[in-house]
C-alpha cells in the first residue's frame, strides 16, 4: 500500500484536530472504495452505503489514534472489512441482492443477459465463506495486490493465496453447476 500523499497527511492531521472540512475531503477521496468493498462483501447496495456511513463515523472518532506509519487507505479498508463482516454476521435474515450494475451495453436483451449473469456470479460469491469472500472482493473488486490484502487483513500472504484459491475454485464449481464446496 503506497504511503499517504503529503496533502492527505495534512488532511488527516487537520481532521484529527476536528476540522470537518478536511474530513469531508478525506471522505470524498475514500468513499467509493469503502462502498465498493462493503458492496463486494455484502452484495447489497443499501447496506454498503450504510456501512460506509458507519465506517466514516468510526474513522472520525478514531482519527487521533491513527498510526501514521501505516497507510490511511489500508486502515480504512480494514475498518470497512470488519464493519461489513459485523453486518454480515448480525444479519437477522438473508437480504436480497438488490443490485443494479453499470452496463456499457445498450440493447435491452444484452443488458438483461448481463444482469442475469451478474446475479448468478453474485449469488455464488454470496455463498462463499466470509474470509474467502473478503479476499476475493479486495482482489477482484479493488484490484489490490496480495501484499496489500495481507496488510489489510493482517494475515500472511500465503493465507491470502489459499483464500483466493479456495474462493475461485468454489466459484468455478458453483458456476459450472457442481454445487458449493462444503
Amino acid at each position: 500500500m503506497p504511503e499517504d500523499a503529503p496533502e492527505e497527511a495534512e488532511l488527516i492531521a487537520a481532521a484529527a484536530r476536528g476540522n470537518t472540512g478536511a474530513f469531508a475531503e478525506l471522505v470524498r477521496i475514500h468513499r467509493m472504495r469503502v462502498v465498493r468493498t462493503a458492496f463486494g462483501v455484502l452484495g447489497s447496495q443499501d447496506e454498503a452505503e450504510d456501512v460506509a456511513q458507519d465506517v466514516f463515523i468510526k474513522v472520525w472518532h478514531a482519527l487521533d489514534t491513527f498510526q501514521h506509519d501505516t497507510s490511511f487507505a489500508s486502515w480504512v479498508y480494514r475498518i470497512t472489512v470488519n464493519t461489513a463482516i459485523d453486518v454480515l454476521r448480525h444479519r437477522k435474515e438473508e437480504v436480497g441482492l438488490d443490485v443494479e450494475y453499470a452496463s456499457p451495453l445498450t440493447r435491452p436483451e444484452d443488458a438483461a443477459l448481463r444482469r442475469d449473469n451478474q446475479q448468478r456470479v453474485r449469488t455464488a460469491i454470496a455463498s462463499l465463506p466470509e474470509s474467502a469472500r473478503v479476499a476475493l472482493t479486495l482482489r477482484e473488486f479493488e484490484q489490490l495486490s496480495y501484499k496489500e490484502i495481507s496488510e489489510i487483513l493482517q494475515i500472511p500472504i500465503g493465507t491470502v493465496m489459499s483464500r483466493l484459491n479456495y474462493a475461485r475454485a468454489s466459484l468455478k464449481k458453483i458456476l459450472s453447476g457442481e454445487g458449493a464446496e462444503e
Partner: peptide
Amino acid sequence: SFCRHIHQAMLEPTECSSDGAFWVRLAARL
C-alpha cells in the same frame, strides 16, 4: 476468461448517493 467474468460481475453499483448527499447524512451523525 473466468477471472474477467468474475470481475465484470463485480462492477460498481450505479445508484450510489452523490458525494454531497452522502456527506450531509454523515455530517449529521458525526
